[in-house]
Design a binder for these strands. Structure first.
Lengths: 125, 125
DNA sequence: TTGTGTGCAAAGCATTTGCACGGCT
DNA sequence: AGCCGTGCAAATGCTTTGCACACAA
């Protein structure tokens, strides 16, 4: 099955790049402004295609909603356990990929969890 | 709100410890054998409590179902992108926790993605 | 006794799917 | 012309919630 290039897919990509770890719903909301006829399912489908093509990364964090990252360069994420805020961190170090008979590693993901400043302050009180 | 210790909670914990990264549903299925009257919601609620208490870790991977890990010692995970198999890896290295004004880090999580041997073989063909 | 925990069923929500139509190629 | 992509709405499936009753403290 060869893949066609469509206006919708590129529009989804543009919206993704202009947002910070958006959910599919957030991408959809943004697009409705410029392309009111777009369907929610199209956004889900295209984000999925972009991830498959390596143009986006699908993120899974505790807020139970899939998020997408248009920045595919390896970098870390910090996630606040209270408000679910996500902050990009530069990758200061790359771990050696584990080698094993049981699997072949292609990517690594490093996340840090804790409290963002705002939530830290709120909990202190 | 003080928390009570209940038979169900400890039973959920025992089941969690005897399974490998189970979903809430898998814990529930296992429990029905020894405690038929337990409710699905009780399992979800107690897994959530266990995670909150630090007796379990909630995992989020691409198969879109929350999984729980009774092994709370820091270790890495390998996840197969094709069949979603999860394999524990010993933590060979701990990264220095990033320090910033914007947040306080409490935990780190390191995941590797790729293909397990089985899926690697299937894709070759 | 008091209020948290439980069981059940219904509700909630993010995501996927079926289908007919539209539009690349 | 052939067929992939889209839009819409319905379906799916995991998880949460409301409520009355059970039970730990």
């Amino acid at each position: 099955m060869k893949r066609r290039s469509t206006k919708q897919r590129e529009t989804v990509y543009m919206a993704l790049m202009s947002l910070y770890h958006p959910t599919a719903e957030e991408v959809y909301e943004k697009l409705r402004a410029e392309c009111p006829s777009i369907g929610r399912a199209t956004v889900f489908r295209n984000l999925s295609v972009l991830a498959e093509e390596g143009r986006a990364v699908k993120l899974f964090f505790p807020d139970e909603v899939a998020r997408y990252d248009g920045n595919v360069d390896g970098h870390y994420h910090f996630v606040c356990r209270r408000c679910d805020a996500i902050i990009d961190l530069p990758a200061t170090q790359k771990l050696p990929l584990p080698v094993s008979d049981a699997f072949t590693v292609e990517q690594q993901e490093i996340n840090f969890y804790g409290l963002c400043r705002e939530c830290h302050r709120k909990i202190e009180q």
